[in-house]
Structures are given as structure tokens and as C-alpha cells.
């Protein structure tokens, strides 16, 4: 344990999402800590205000609290078909709220494996529990996924300050 700690202190470890470990210098300490802490299931945010929880090769996608507040009461959720291959920034579906149809912008590449069936009866779950019960769809993530363009929750909080 001590040895591993010492090694890491010299070469901060960055673990890719496919489980491979590589050494990366000049990784800021705070980022390194948050990565290692959440290795099992890490949550990331896109600039378009979608979140994705990554657990191994599985990803779950939803919209952030900020996004649901901006949208207002959601009355209809249009989700992708199971089996759809989606790339980053592809339109995955559509959320309708107060007369506006807003695209769901897919945050990470992968294939849709499951959609949240509850949302057809209770679309407002996206408003009440955007980060939990209001998840939108699950994916098998593309191998070798990088999270370079995504933010962890601390970085996202910071990003939100520039949003209004």
C-alpha cells in the first residue's frame, strides 16, 4: 500500500475507463483524487448539461438539475430505440416542456441498451429526480472511451457559474 502510494505520488495515475492504467505526469492533485475515488462508478457532465454515470462499460445518461430547471415542467419524453448507436453530440431524443421540444444531446459514444420506461407515464420524474429516477437511457459504451471533454461534478459546478 505504502509502495503503491509512493509510486503514485511520483507518477500520478490516470486510469482509463477501459480499466487500463497509465502514468500521467502533471495531473492536478484534485482531479486525481476525484478520479480514484469514483473509479467504480464515476459521474460526468457535458457542456450541454447531460450527465453520464460510467460503471465499467455501462453508462447511464440523464440531464442535470440545472437543465431541468431551465426546461420547466416536462410533459413528454421521447427516447432512443434500443440498439441505436449514438456518437457524442448525436441527438438521442427529445424532451417536451412548455411548448418547446428540446433535443437530448448524447454525451458519450455507445449503443443504447435500455430506456427508462417510467418516463412515458411520469415524464415529470425528470424534473423531480433528474439525477436519479429521472435517468433517460443506458448504454454499452464504446471501448477506449475518453472523458476529456466531460467535467466532474466540481468542474461542472464551476462551469454553471458561467452559464447564466
Amino acid at each position: 500500500m505504502a509502495a503503491s502510494f509512493a509510486r503514485r505520488a511520483v507518477f500520478p495515475t490516470y486510469r482509463c475507463l477501459n480499466g487500463l492504467t497509465r502514468y500521467r505526469q502533471n495531473v492536478c492533485h484534485a482531479r486525481y483524487l476525484s478520479l480514484s475515488k469514483n473509479l467504480q462508478a464515476s459521474q460526468w457532465f457535458s457542456k450541454d448539461h447531460e450527465w453520464v454515470t460510467i460503471d465499467g462499460q455501462k453508462g447511464t445518461v440523464g440531464i442535470s438539475m440545472y437543465a431541468q430547471e431551465k426546461l420547466g415542467e416536462i410533459v413528454y419524453v421521447e427516447l432512443p430505440e434500443i440498439g441505436t448507436k449514438l456518437d457524442t453530440e448525436d441527438v438521442a431524443g427529445c424532451l417536451e416542456s412548455v411548448k418547446a421540444a428540446s433535443d437530448i444531446v448524447n454525451p458519450v459514444p455507445g449503443t443504447v441498451t435500455e430506456v427508462n420506461g417510467k418516463l412515458s407515464d411520469q415524464p415529470a420524474l425528470v424534473n423531480s429526480e433528474p439525477m436519479k429516477g429521472g435517468w433517460l437511457y443506458k448504454m454499452d459504451l464504446k471501448a477506449g472511451l475518453k472523458t476529456d471533454d466531460l467535467m466532474d461534478s466540481a468542474a461542472y459546478e464551476e462551469y454553471l457559474k458561467s452559464c447564466d
Binding site: K47, D48, H49, E50, Y66, A67, K70, S162, C163
Partner: peptide, 12 residues
Amino acid sequence: MFPVGLRIFSSF
């Protein structure tokens, strides 16, 4: 979903 306003400016 929300390409946020003034994203270009926000990094300035």
C-alpha cells in the same frame, strides 16, 4: 442540451 449561452465568452 443547453449549449450554454456565451460559452465562447465564458472562458475569457
